[in-house]
């Protein structure tokens, strides 16, 4: 039986009526057309589906859509202001921290969660924060550099 869910999605209150077996990831992609979060493994291993739930990174593939009721959910689409990219998104581009881009929304959300808690993380903390996100293309170096660039900027300001 379908159930109603009300939650905050990228800052806006939203509503949906959804079957209990649908994952949060599929609801975001198919009901709300937010295709940033990707399905890589569908089982918590790759982090491509990472979104922030009450500011904490979680695997949207391991959450039922009905569980979203009352929660605050932020996807990569919620970072930019219209066409204006968020600082972290722009830095990923500046550092060429992506190739195919499949892991990128998840990487950015994991890094975002870290920066929200700690604006000036060390390289070690960055590596730990993205250790639940797999990238098959870049070898992680540029991703870490991009996040460290923000950390260094925050340290300087």
């Amino acid at each position: 039986m379908k159930r109603d869910v009300c939650f905050i999605l990228n800052g806006e209150p939203v509503k949906a009526s959804i079957e209990p077996h649908v994952t949060l990831l599929h609801m975001l992609r198919e009901v709300f057309d937010l295709t940033g979060a990707k399905e890589g493994c569908g089982g918590g291993e790759c982090g491509a589906c990472t979104v922030l739930v009450n500011n904490k990174p979680m695997n949207a593939c391991l959450i039922l859509a009905v569980e979203a009721d009352g929660l605050d959910i932020l996807t990569v689409e919620g970072l930019s202001n219209g066409l204006e990219l968020d600082e972290l998104q722009q830095t990923f581009i500046d550092h060429a921290a992506l190739q195919c881009g499949y892991c990128t929304p998840g990487m950015i959300m994991s890094a975002k969660a870290l920066l929200m808690k700690n604006p000036t993380p060390t390289e070690d903390q960055v590596v730990k924060a993205i250790s639940g996100n797999l990238c098959r293309c870049t070898g992680y170096k540029k991703i870490v550099e991009a996040v460290m660039d923000i950390s260094n900027r925050n340290l300087g300001s």
Binding site: P57, M58, N59, L62, A113, K128, G132
Partner: peptide, 9 residues
């Protein structure tokens, strides 16, 4: 256990 995302759940 798992990753940061897993441990948040």
């Amino acid at each position: 256990v798992g990753s940061c995302q897993v441990r948040n759940r």
